Simulated assay, not measured.
Amino acid sequence: MSKVHPSAIVDPKAELDSTVEVGPYSIIGPDVRIGAGTVVGPHVVIEGHTTIGRDNRIFQFASLGAAPQDKKWAGEPTRLEIGDRNTIREFCTFNLGTVQDAGVTRLGDDNWMSAYTHLAHDCQVGSNTIFSNNAQLAGHVHVGDWAILSGYCGVHQFCKIGAHAFIGMYTSLTQDVPPFVLVSGNPAEAHGVNIEGLKRRGFTREQINAIRTAYKTIYRSGLTLEEAKARLAEEEAAAGDAAQHIRALRDFLDNASRGIVR
């Protein structure tokens, strides 16, 4: 049997692995599934069609799977999916998706979600990200792997943040941020490549230099974005083991939905 505190309310239809722990006064709804080793702290509410993977740590007062803050939502059985080994700190709020999008809000694996972070409906967050206190995503935002969002930054709906990007404290983000790029400010401005983050993740000097060259092509060359994308194709062909990273940058630019911070 799961280790459920006597004061917690767990619906009999909820599916909890036998190793799940649930703290005092937490509430878990009928359509919730929680995987092995996950610890739910006190005063947590988990509702909706919510699936949570293995070995997550959910701290007190979090609200997961509540109805989307979207007036169009009419009670459809949309979902929240949380992967494995995530740390979800106090007062985090992750909402269900909507039928106007994929119908699911997703959080991947090994993410660190600090206190008061918000994932609105239909957000898609990858793995190994860090959200500092009060980082807030509006609806339909996509965040790539290893991205870092600093405290009190706010992200406009439908924005995309590329892998390994870094968003500075108090940033107001209304456009897409390409992979590897460091942005900050209100309005947001690009301030180079997230070099320290890339070093920590084992990128080689050659790979980092190729990414820096690509950044200069986009931001410092005076080229239009279309001209810069054409030059990036040439740089990719000569990038050796960095080619995959330049290709990821090109693919992001091709699919940017709100224009990029530039």
Rank of each mutant, 00 (worst) to 15 (best):
F94M: 12
E196S: 04
D110C: 13
F180M: 01
L96Y: 11
Y215L: 05
G151Q: 03
K160V: 03
V155N: 07
R33N: 03
S2I: 12
T105M: 07
T19R: 12
N95K: 13
C153K: 06
T105Y: 04
P30F: 02
Y219Q: 07
G151L: 03
C92R: 02
I208V: 09
G83K: 04
T105N: 02
H156S: 01
D109C: 01
V141L: 05
T87R: 14
L119S: 04
K216Y: 04
W112C: 02
D254H: 02
A135E: 09
V125D: 00
H118Q: 13
N194Q: 07
E76Y: 09
C153I: 03
I58G: 04
V32E: 11
I9S: 08
P68C: 09
G108Y: 10
G37I: 12
G126P: 03
A67F: 08
K3I: 15
S257P: 07
L119E: 01
A230M: 09
K216C: 06
G126K: 05
A242Y: 05
E235M: 15
A210C: 06
N86C: 06
L173R: 04
T51R: 13
G29E: 01
H49E: 08
C153N: 09
D251W: 01
P30S: 11
K13F: 09
V193G: 00
S7T: 15
L225F: 14
P77D: 08
V104Y: 12
A147Y: 04
R262H: 05
R33P: 00
R247C: 00
P30E: 15
I34T: 06
R79K: 14
D109Y: 06
L96N: 04
L119D: 06
H142G: 01
D31K: 10
S63R: 08
G23M: 07
I246R: 05
V177P: 01
H156V: 07
I195H: 09
K3H: 13
V177Y: 11
M169S: 14
G144D: 03
G144A: 04
P68V: 09
I167R: 00
S172P: 00
G151V: 03
A62T: 09
C153P: 02
T19H: 08
K3N: 13
H245I: 08
G168N: 06
Q157H: 11
I167L: 14
F59H: 12
D11L: 10
K72C: 00
I46S: 00
A190Q: 12
F91W: 10
V45Y: 05
V141E: 10
I52V: 13
G202V: 03
A256D: 15
G103V: 02
